[in-house]
Design a binder for these strands. Structure first.
Length: 818
RNA sequence: GCCUCGGUACUCCAACGGUAGAGAGGGCAGACUCAAAAUCUGCACAGUGUCGGUUCGAGUCCGACUCGAGGCACCA
């Protein structure tokens, strides 16, 4: 009788041995293997690892371990994204320091990762909260500053009243703070920005390189986020104002249909136009109301349009018509020029506004019978131009071309582009982040901290009040904040804000090539050798923020000659989330599944297999549908096979049972393909088949002594090493090999063994299956057709009718059409 | 409102335009056992969300609808 497979014993046995032989070290200079860089998104250290981490790292590990087996020198590093608000909030709550909390959690997570046995290279670890790391954040900031890509401006920013800090556009989700779900408000503040909009076109156009290599969904989300719109700027003269007002429109063809103009209520232009008119008081009241609106209010659907007539008029440049100017909150101050020409007939929002204010509607595009001026439903499609003077009769594209050219000629307009993307606001009024390396001097203004003074280290949080209060806690660190101006020596103050932690993660993948380098952010030579990342693995939650910022940084670094490539991540795999009973796990929902408990109960390998086998990697997993005990049962079956093998190490496989050998080689080929196409669940199913086939061969086939059984068992061990490292190593050892199975090498497939002895051909009449026949895989079309025509079922199916067509696809099918 | 992705047994999921079922969970029955667990063997359960089209042939391609998930959301 077999003894039971001792899951935890096996774990305890192999971990120290692996520590000793360190199979995943990738940094040896003389390593002859070709390089590959497999990267998992690094975790935030908020407590222990959870099921989501377990899934992500299991997926990344399959890829990493596969390429190692295929003979690559794989760099598979891990680190911690360890600056951020949760540490600060925890510190406030516990009365301790963010640093202490953070590094404690890192230790906990690191221990869990080691237990989980990922193929991480433990020689390459980084923490973004180490001064040795964030020094280079500061260096990068100053590089961007030198290039004019980091700048300060005073403008309305997203403000989270609960976190008491500003937020990037990307951190506002449906009007709520992504961290705490508080309704975000607007606040006018002087803040630091990175000029990502300068790179909008390249961020958009370079996505062509990623086509087919990144999930289509992510590319689409990035495209939408950048939101390039092509249109024209048109100048309108304003009565009683010297300078014209420029509007941006994507539909210059409808210029003759403009019946009014709208300016953003919160724009400077609106206030200026209202000043001194009889509407001024009304406008001011309206503006007060607009300022109080939260994003939530603004986002409410079916919100009635509101606005104030400013008692001013614009002149339509194409026909000289007087257009009333309104101020409204439905026009955004920070998009385009903050002013629009309103064409209610062909824009739904303008139509809503016209209806609410009783403004005229003039149809200028004939859209097949539907007339907006009578239906009061805007039409946005194509059609023949009407009521448009010289444009009449043209279609949309022709009209746009003609009017744009005319406006340009008369210097009344020009083609223009706009982006939904805004500059990246990076200042944060919090403590636990990278200090911004700028000193403010009354005489010299903004003065960059000289490079030799970097890093600007965070002071001890001891004695500082970290509670959110709207300004950085660093401002109160007297000794830290007060310095001499590096330029004139006069008393000056450090910038007390810290950087958005997304700055940290926008370049960390470069640092792994030498995380301990003290003379530069990264070693250019090593980066050229390893980068770009061949395979990036992480959650789709970062589809916009982190990936966009990293792409931006890479392009900036390319432009300053630091890297030769323009895209950081060649391939991207997004794994899904782990749910419980249909919803995200959380303590408050009471559906939290603890990873550590699962590992205790079922063992590391069973949990990893369960997560990988549950479905396609991109799909969410409902843990309620998963059976870790079933996975353990499978591992047991696999393990027993290794114990059953009685042939010696090194036996000649080619003398083994051909039937089993074919199963084995087909399995290896299928598993390779499945892994390379990210169908890990299918890969495991194929291993299961191989285990089942081998079991049968041992029990009722060629028997345990046959060399083919050893070949199969070794293939199982190697295949399992991608996802169940402990079981695989134990099998490998039972089979008489030395560790590590991770470096055993992927078995070579013999193409001759992939040919099946016989295949089932199907005979159809009019696409209906009439018969199935075993045939040779190399049968010719002619022979197969003859067989079919001689087949009794087929003859009966045809029943003497005239044969119109014969489709023959040897060796699979014959279809007779009558 | 706009855009994207997806609906296959009781459940999770496989199927180069060519036999719908690879794999697993769950269920039932049997073997082994004093019994249970483990193990082994066997069985049942769907015709692919709906309608239409293309094709010799459609789960697969196209169109519409429907349901579900996600993204964007007054971006002119």
């Amino acid at each position: 009788m077999h003894e039971a497979y001792d899951v935890h014993g096996v774990e305890a046995k192999w971990l120290p041995i692996w520590d000793e032989i360190a199979p995943f070290r990738s940094g040896r200079a003389d390593d002859p293997r070709p390089k590959k860089y497999v990267l998992d998104m690094f975790p935030y250290p908020s407590g222990d690892l959870h099921m989501g981490h377990a899934e992500a790292y299991a997926m990344g590990d399959v890829i990493s371990r596969y390429w190692i087996q295929k003979g690559f020198n794989v760099m598979h590093p891990i680190g911690w994204d360890s600056f951020g608000l949760p540490a600060e909030n925890a510190a406030i709550k516990r009365g301790s320091s963010p640093k202490e909390w953070t590094y404690e959690n890192i230790a906990v997570q690191k221990a869990s990762m080691r237990r989980y046995a990922c193929s991480f290279d433990w020689d390459r670890v980084l923490h973004t909260s180490d001064p040795e790391y964030y020094k280079w954040n500061q260096w990068l900031f100053l590089e961007l500053y030198k290039k004019g890509l980091a700048y300060r401006k005073n403008s309305a920013v997203n403000w989270c009243p609960s976190c008491q800090t500003v937020l990037a556009n990307e951190q506002v989700v449906a009007g709520l703070c992504e961290r705490c779900d508080t309704a975000v408000t607007k606040k006018k503040l002087y803040q630091w920005y990175f000029k990502i909009t300068d790179y909008a076109d390249r961020l958009l156009d370079d996505m062509e390189q990623l086509e087919g290599k990144w999930p289509e969904k992510v590319l689409l989300m990035q495209r939408n986020w950048i939101g390039r719109s092509i249109g024209a700027e048109v100048q309108f003269l304003i009565e009683g104002r010297e300078a014209p007002v420029t509007v941006y429109t994507t539909r210059p063809d409808t210029l003759h249909g403009a019946t009014f103009m709208v300016v953003a209520a919160d724009s400077d232009l609106a206030s200026e136009l209202a000043a001194g008119t009889t509407s001024e008081a009304e406008f001011k009241t309206y503006l007060e109301g607009v300022k109080k609106e939260s994003d939530i209010d603004r986002l409410a659907t079916d919100r009635p349009k509101t606005g104030v007539f400013l008692n001013r008029y614009a002149i339509n440049p194409v026909n000289g018509e007087k257009l009333p100017i309104w101020a409204s909150d439905y026009v955004l101050a920070d998009y385009g020029t903050g002013a629009i020409m309103a064409v209610p007939a062909h824009d739904d929002r303008d139509m809503q506004f016209a209806k609410a204010m009783g403004l005229p509607v003039r149809t200028v595009v004939d859209c097949e019978g539907e007339d907006p001026s009578t239906t009061f439903i805007a039409t946005t499609g194509d059609g023949k131009m009407i009521n448009s003077g010289p444009l009449n009769g043209l279609n949309k594209a022709e009209a746009i071309a003609k009017i744009t050219a005319e406006l340009a000629e008369k210097k009344l307009g020009k083609p223009a582009k706009n982006y939904r993307l805004r500059d990246w606001l990076i200042s944060r009024q919090r403590f636990w982040g990278t200090p911004i390396p700028i000193i403010h001097c009354e005489k010299c203004g903004e003065v960059p901290v000289p490079q030799e003074q970097l890093p600007v280290e965070l002071p001890d949080s001891q004695g500082l009040d970290l509670k959110p209060k709207g300004s950085s806690p660093l401002g109160a660190a007297e000794e830290w904040v007060n310095v001499a101006c590096p330029q004139c020596g006069a008393p000056a103050k450090r910038d007390a804000d810290t950087m958005d932690t997304f700055v940290d993660s926008s370049w960390y993948f470069l640092r792994y090539t030498n995380p301990d380098l003290s003379t530069a952010a990264f070693d250019k030579q090593l980066v050229e050798e390893w980068l770009p990342v061949d395979q990036y693995v992480g959650g789709v939650t970062h589809a916009i923020l982190h990936l966009l910022y990293s792409r931006f940084f890479t392009k900036v670094l390319h432009d300053i000659g630091m890297v030769s490539f323009t895209e950081p991540f060649t391939r991207l795999l997004n794994q899904g989330m782990v749910l419980m009973d249909g919803s995200a796990m959380s303590k408050s929902r009471g559906n939290l599944v603890r990873l550590s408990e699962q590992l205790d109960t079922h063992g590391v390998d069973a949990i990893r297999i369960s997560l990988v086998f549950a479905g396609p990697p991109e799909d969410d997993i409902d843990w309620a549908d998963v059976s870790p005990s079933g996975s353990l049962k499978f591992l047991n079956r696999a393990w027993r096979i290794a114990g059953d093998v009685t042939s010696a190490v090194g036996v000649d496989f080619t003398t083994g049972d051909v039937g089993l050998r074919k199963i084995t080689h087909k399995a290896i080929a299928d598993i390779s393909l499945a892994v390379e196409t990210f169908r890990f669940n299918v890969a495991i199913a194929r291993v299961m088949e191989l285990v089942n086939g081998t079991r049968k061969a041992i029990d009722s086939g060629c028997g345990p002594a046959d060399p083919a059984v050893r070949e199969a068992a070794e293939a199982i061990a190697i295949a399992l090493s991608l996802v169940a490292p402990f079981t695989a190593e134990e099998m490998w050892s039972l089979l008489g090999h030395k560790p590590a199975v991770a470096l055993a090498g992927w078995p070579t497939v013999d193409p001759a063994l992939l040919e099946a002895d016989a295949v089932t051909a199907i005979f159809q009449v009019n696409g209906k299956i009439k018969a199935r026949v075993e045939v040779s895989p190399s049968i010719s079309n002619g022979d197969l057709e003859a067989m079919a025509l001689a087949n009794a079922e087929i003859i009966a199916g045809i029943a003497g009718a005239e044969i119109k067509k014969k489709i023959v696809v040897a060796p699979k099918l014959v279809n007779i059409v009558i």
